[in-house]
Each structure stands twice: as structure tokens, then as C-alpha cells.
Simulated assay, not measured.
Amino acid sequence: MFYWFLKLIALGPVLKLVFRPQTDGVDHVPEEGPAILACNHLSYADWLFMPLTLPRRVTFVAKAEYFTTPGLKGWLQKQFFSGAGQVPIDRSGADAASGALLSAKKVLGEGHLFGIYPEGTRSHDGRLYRGKTGVARLALETGVPVVPCAVIGTDVVAPPGKTFGSFTRPIVRFGKPLDFSRYEGMENDRYILRSITDEIMYEIMRLSGQEYVDKYASQAKKDDSKKAEAEAKAKAETASEQKKAS
């Protein structure tokens, strides 16, 4: 498969040689059969380093546009994302979230590993944010175990807002599989979904050592952006007043 060519012949050896990622707990990932790998999200490089540490393919969902763009550029883009272990969001879903869930269930139904970032978006400040309950719903509807995992140092290699950062050896840690079969049939109970998600996030926090913030990452980004704008405006107004007074 193109994926294994990309990983074993091209990309994999280069990343391993240059960055020498450290791993811990790989034995917690099933050697066969489906499992959900729930990971923190520090950088766009996470989906490169985490799967690199495993002998099995890890599949993520990506925007459908990455697979439907016409022309040579679109074909190359499709080959890259397909080869790198990503599948398009199922457009038959009512929205992006349900479409992603449908795609994930197909991957797991075929006995593969599925990677998911419960935070929904990258952390902009290195802290761990509240998880969205999609990971819990997926676990209950499929009945597969959830393996918590944490990447450390990828935000140094590729910081938010930058293509490249500085060198470090990323660390990838995997925790013991979490079994939620005791909640079978309760996938529509929002309190159960929140409880499961919080348990998963706690394990990710324990593995990563990150500070936890009980707020969605997307909202935290907006709040920090507004705060920065307000501070910049206040600073500009102060400077203007000082200039008038001088």
C-alpha cells in the first residue's frame, strides 16, 4: 500500500533518524482488532509522530475536500492523505460531527485502529482542554476499547502558527486500554458521555503532565484572542494619551 511506502520507505526513517522519538507503553495498544487511540493535540505534527511509533496503521478522519479536489494537485493531495492514514468525513452525516462518527465506525468495523483528538482542535498554549463527547459516543456505539495516549514535544518541533520550530525528541506515551462496556446501551445519556470523556481526558492528562483546563479549546482560543485585542487596544489608547499630554 502507498501508506507503507510513505511510512517505511520515505517519511518514517527520516523522522526516526532525525527526531528519534521516545515511546512508552506501546504494549498497551492491541496487536490486532479495533481500538480507539484518544490523544492530546499540541501540533499538526501529532498525526505524524504518534502513528510512527506503532507497527499498525492508525487512521484519522480529514476534511472531505482533501479527497475531492480536481486536477493533478487534487490527485496528489488525495494520495498523500490516503497514504498518511487519513479518510474523508462521511458526507452522508447530518453534519461534520456525525459524518466523522460514521467514518470512524467504518474504520473500527474493519478491525483497524482509529485515532481521535477529543479536544477537537490544537491547544494554542500547551494546556490540555476539555474533551468533546464524540469519543465517548464512538466507544459506546462500537464497544471497542479506548487507549489514551499523549504526545510531548511536538509543539516544540512544530509550534502553533509556525511550520517549523526547533529540535527536540518527541515522546509518545500510551496508557492501559479503558473498557466502558459497563455503560452499554447508554450512548444517548449525556451525563454518561461526559463522565466517560472526562475519564479519558484524566488519563491523557496523567500521561502528558499537562495542566488541565475545564473549557473547550476553541472557546479558550477565542477568549484569549479577545483578551489580547483588548490589551492591545488599551495599550494603544494609553500611548495616544501620553503622546497628547507630552
Rank of each mutant, 00 (worst) to 15 (best):
Pro118Lys: 07
Pro51Asp: 09
Pro55Gly: 01
Gly115Tyr: 02
Asp95Glu: 10
Val58Pro: 04
Ala38Ile: 13
Leu72Ser: 11
Ala64Asn: 14
Ala96His: 03
Gly120Asp: 01
Tyr44Thr: 01
Thr53Asn: 05
Cys39Tyr: 01
Lys105Asn: 00
Ser103Pro: 14
Thr121Gln: 08
Arg91Ile: 11
Gly71His: 06
Gly115Asp: 10
Ser98Arg: 06
Trp47Val: 15
Val107Ile: 14
Tyr44Leu: 15
Gly115Asn: 03
Leu48Ile: 10
Ser123Asp: 06
Thr69His: 03
Leu54Asn: 04
Leu101Val: 05
Ala94Ile: 15
Leu101His: 04
Ala104Lys: 00
Cys39Leu: 10
Phe80Thr: 10
Phe67Tyr: 07
Thr68Glu: 14
Ala104Leu: 02
Gly74Glu: 11
Leu108Asp: 00
Val87Asn: 01
Glu65Gln: 08
Gly85Ala: 14
Gly83Thr: 11
Arg56Tyr: 13
Arg122Pro: 08
Ala96Ser: 10
Gly83Asn: 00
Ala94Cys: 10
Gly109Met: 14
Ser98Tyr: 02
Thr121Gly: 05
Gln79Arg: 15
Phe67Thr: 06
Pro118Gln: 08
Gly93Arg: 12
Gly126Arg: 08
Ser92Gln: 07
Phe49Ser: 05
His41Lys: 04
Trp47Glu: 10
Gly109Phe: 06
Glu119Trp: 08
His112Gly: 14
Gln77Leu: 15
Gly83Glu: 10
Leu76Lys: 07
Asp90Lys: 11
Gly93Pro: 03
Leu72Ala: 12
Val107Phe: 09
Asp95Val: 15
Gly126Leu: 09
His41Asp: 05
Ser43Ala: 01
Gly71Pro: 02
Leu52Asn: 08
Ser43Asn: 03
Gly93Tyr: 01
Phe81Ser: 12
Trp75Tyr: 09
Glu110Asn: 13
Lys63Ser: 12
Phe67Gln: 04
Asp95His: 07
Gly126Cys: 14
Thr59Gly: 01
Asp90Leu: 05
Gly115Ala: 06
Ser82Met: 09
Pro88Ala: 04
Val87Cys: 01
Ser92Leu: 02
Gly111Ala: 10
Leu48Val: 07
Leu54Cys: 02
Ile116Tyr: 02
Phe114Asn: 00
Glu110Ala: 09
Gln77Lys: 15
Lys73Trp: 12
Leu128Ile: 12
Asp90Glu: 12
Cys39Asp: 04
